[in-house]
Design a protein around this nucleic acid. Structure first.
Length: 497
DNA sequence: AAAAAAC
């Protein structure tokens, strides 16, 4: 019944043909097909072509201006990254923002607002790909907290023509919190650029605001799939002049149990209205499935991937705590996590369900432990308030479902607790490796220190964590649950205490 | 056996 699955099961030979035929339109954005006339998402997919193997040129050795570099360091970093270029044209690795030929106003934003000095690894690598004509698509993977947001925000800002007062860039995010955060980065970075933005997320009075809302004339739209789709279908948002479309947390945006349908629909809408635009897919994780799917819908994209063994960040120390019972889990929070968290910055405690988020919150609250909680069942107003309080440092400990697992960027977060391990909810069952990485990546932002504690009770917990440990080739040592000193020692080891 | 968006 599922057209996507059928599509994936078809033999590759039959799919290779169209790409041979399709003329390579030099100087235009290519790949996500424009010849699609079908109205359905299915139509879009079946018309997409896969490039043949020799169509992509494998260039793992980027052209480096080696004389200026610490070659040893750069070589080590480059070796972790697998780069595939869309065409036989190498890009220069940008070591300074000046090399990118972006406007003075944007440079000013980068230096004086963002306090950046030079591009990070992923920025130096991908920004030339994003900003150089013919504006190929890009599928880019980079570590949590390594500066992906800057890549696509700067990409959008640079590609927008400030003189044209119409939507030219869209960024799609999986949660409203992430959309808000990304817009804040855009506003900051683009402070001097004279570019306007709109945040396309639901409000508590959605009906009212979206029917009353006039035509969107802002140049950059950042939002969540539902509202973006709605703005497009109600013609509030005209996509004719969209030049660049970004998927943040792209693996989730294209996952079948994520936002795949919404994302493809949005791509299709833009393709129908203007023949397509440059599309960027950014995430810290791409499992084999989604990776293949992403490459399939954007066959001519530049690709940047990281090996999974290299993904688990060394700066985040990971531990397991074997708890004798579920009841004891709460005590471990109270006796160990809370005191540490109060001293060491801020903490996020991840749980699996909305109900356990509010239950745990209530229980700790009743015993006088100050914390807040967030989950998708709260009103938008409450969600915004909880985030505001956490951002301001007013609250130190935040209990959360996976709504904050991805992308949420708060520099002060030093401790992440997996109160429940992240699990897959469909076959093949077992640990959700990607989610695990995203959760622990809420600490250790941009090279800071961080620690993650995994609370285990059952044999299944143990097994799941062992699999996670194995998958990322990382040892996850035990901290005895009843040993104060051991806990202190471990925090020191993590560079926190 | 869930969460996310949004209807």
């Amino acid at each position: 019944m599922d057209s996507i699955a059928e599509e994936q099961d078809r033999p590759a030979e039959t799919e290779d043909e169209p790409s041979e035929e399709a003329p390579r339109a030099a100087g235009t954005e290519e790949g996500i097909s424009k010849e699609d006339g079908g109205a359905s998402v299915t139509g879009e997919i079946s018309s997409l072509s896969i490039s043949s193997a020799d169509d992509v040129v494998d260039k793992p050795e980027m052209t480096l201006k080696s004389e200026k570099l610490n070659e040893e360091v750069e070589a080590a970093e480059v070796s972790q990254i697998k780069t595939v270029l869309a065409a036989d044209t190498p890009y220069s690795w940008a070591q300074t923002f000046e090399e990118l030929n972006i406007s003075e106003n944007l440079l000013r934003g980068l230096y004086s607002e963002m306090k950046f000095e030079r591009p990070s690894k992923i920025q130096g690598l991908t920004l030339p790909m994003i900003l150089s004509p013919p504006y190929h698509h890009l599928i880019a993977q980079a570590h949590n907290g390594s500066g992906k947001t800057t890549c696509f925000v700067l990409g959008m800002l640079s590609r927008v023509d400030p003189e044209v007062q119409a939507p030219q860039a869209i960024c799609v995010c999986p949660t409203r919190e992430l959309a808000i955060q990304n817009e804040e980065v855009l506003l900051k970075m683009g402070k001097f650029a004279n570019i306007t933005s709109a945040c396309a997320i639901s409000t508590d009075f959605n009906k009212q605001s979206s029917t009353r809302r006039g035509q969107v004339v802002d140049q950059v739209i950042i939002g969540t799939p539902g509202t973006i789709k709605r703005w497009i279908s109600t013609k509030i948002l005209n996509t004719k002049q969209i030049k660049i479309l970004v998927f943040d947390e792209a693996d989730h945006m294209l996952a079948q149990d994520g936002f795949q349908d919404d994302s493809l629909r949005i791509i299709q809408n833009i393709t129908k209205s203007n023949g397509g635009c440059q599309v960027l897919f950014f995430s810290a994780t791409f499992n084999e499935n989604v990776k293949n799917f992403t490459v399939r819908i954007a066959p001519k994209a530049n690709q940047v991937f990281v090996k999974k063994e290299e993904l688990s960040l060394d700066v985040i120390k990971q531990y397991r705590v074997r708890c004798p019972s579920d009841a004891e889990k709460v005590n471990i929070l109270k006796d160990r996590i809370f005191p540490a968290a109060e001293k060491l910055g801020q903490s996020i405690i991840f749980v699996r369900t909305r109900a356990s988020a509010s239950n745990l919150h209530r229980r700790l609250d009743a015993d006088g432990y100050k914390c807040t909680s967030i989950q998708g069942g709260l009103s938008n107003e409450d969600r915004d308030r909880v985030i505001r309080e956490f951002r301001s440092g007013q609250t130190k400990i935040l209990i959360s479902t996976d709504v904050l697992a991805r992308g949420f960027d708060q520099a002060q977060v030093t401790l992440v607790v997996n109160y429940d391990l992240p699990l897959k909810n469909a076959p093949p069952y077992g640990p959700d490796y990607e989610l695990y990485l995203h959760r622990i990546g809420r600490s250790g932002r941009f090279g800071r220190k961080g620690a993650a504690f995994n609370l285990l009770v059952s044999a299944a917990d143990e097994e799941n964590l062992n699999q996670i440990s194995q998958y990322f080739s990382r040892d996850i040592p035990e901290v005895p649950w009843d040993d104060d000193e051991a806990f202190e020692k471990v925090l020191k080891e993590a560079g926190l205490a």
